[in-house]
Simulated assay, not measured.
Amino acid sequence: MQDRKIVFFDIDGTLVDDEKKIPESAVQAVKTLQENGVITAIATGRAPFMFKHIREQLNIQTFVSFNGQYVVHNNEPVFKNPLSKESLFKLEQQAEKNGHPMAFLGSETMAANNSHSFIEKSFNDLKIIPPLEDRMFHHNEEIYQALLFCKQSDKMDYLDMFSDFEYIRWHEYSMDVVPSGGSKAEGIKYLLNKLNIDIKNTYAFGDALNDIEMLSFVPHSFAMGNGVDEAKQAAKYVTKHVQDDGIYYGLQQAGLLNV
């Protein structure tokens, strides 16, 4: 196996702060990694079109998106795992009965099956324009992730009924819907195998519930100081807050900025 190192960065709450801006110290740290020959990658629940500007700013061409369902290396897709259309349609029917809207994400764009305040609030908090309504979009496109808009107390309705999917909450009004067994860790496993990189040379930074599998799997994992307790418990180390140069501090502690 190659002895080359790779670092995976979550986006929200990790690479970007509450204002969705990347601290300058993180920008410089990523640049130093690249100059040192370390592969820099993103691991996110976002769709590729939602963080194109971040990849361009940081000169990153490798990423695990949709919580592991769409993996790209050097801007070329190397793994795709779309949701089952049959199961997705059944989930949508149940969600409509419950009064819960959904959004459907392809690799290039997205659409919602309704307009709803939960959709507006969730996307506004990401500082991303909410999807337009198109009730047929997911019938005609490969869907790698869906968003189910409901409160935390409503989650069990879907857990008991649809075992094809896993539900990862990222907002008080929204859950990611991914294939059962899917996670950032699974996408990372595929990429490491593809690139012939030893797991011992793998590093990861995250802060949220959808980072738990990744932080547990990667041997050199860092939870952000602003992260949830579950992420901190899963990680091997806890770095500083994203707004307190957490990425730079963690990479420095890992010895990756002095190679």
Score class of each variant (00 low, 15 high):
G187A: 07
G45M: 09
S115P: 00
A235M: 07
N124M: 10
V259P: 09
Q34A: 11
V38I: 15
Q94R: 13
Y173H: 13
Y173L: 07
P23H: 06
S117P: 04
V30E: 03
V38C: 04
L91G: 05
E142M: 12
V259R: 13
M136E: 15
A223G: 04
L256C: 10
T14C: 10
P219R: 07
Y158R: 10
K80Q: 15
G227L: 03
M224T: 05
K80I: 10
I247K: 03
A223M: 05
F104G: 01
S180M: 09
T239E: 06
V38M: 05
R46S: 01
F49Y: 15
P101I: 03
D160A: 13
D125G: 05
M50E: 15
P101V: 06
G182A: 14
E108H: 06
A234P: 06
D10Y: 02
S117I: 15
H139Y: 13
S65G: 03
E186P: 00
E24C: 00
V218N: 04
F9E: 09
T239F: 03
K236C: 03
I212W: 08
F162R: 07
A185I: 05
G227Q: 04
I22S: 06
I199F: 05
F217N: 01
F79Q: 03
E142W: 02
Q93V: 10
K31D: 12
C150E: 10
N196W: 01
Y248D: 02
G99M: 02
K155C: 11
L215Y: 04
P48C: 08
N98D: 14
V178W: 07
F79M: 12
R135P: 00
M175W: 14
E86V: 12
Y190S: 07
E76F: 05
D134N: 15
L105C: 13
D211H: 00
A146R: 00
F137S: 11
S84V: 01
A146K: 00
I129S: 14
Q69D: 07
Q152D: 14
P48N: 09
K52G: 00
L256I: 09
K184N: 11
E166K: 08
F162S: 09
G246W: 04
F8K: 05
D160L: 15
T32W: 00
L192F: 09
F63A: 14
L215D: 02
V16A: 08
T14F: 06
E172I: 12
D244N: 15
L251C: 10
V178A: 13
L83C: 00
Q34L: 03
M214Q: 09
G181P: 06
M156G: 01
M224I: 06
V64F: 10
I11H: 02
K5R: 15
S122Y: 03
N67V: 08
M102G: 02
D12I: 13
F137A: 13
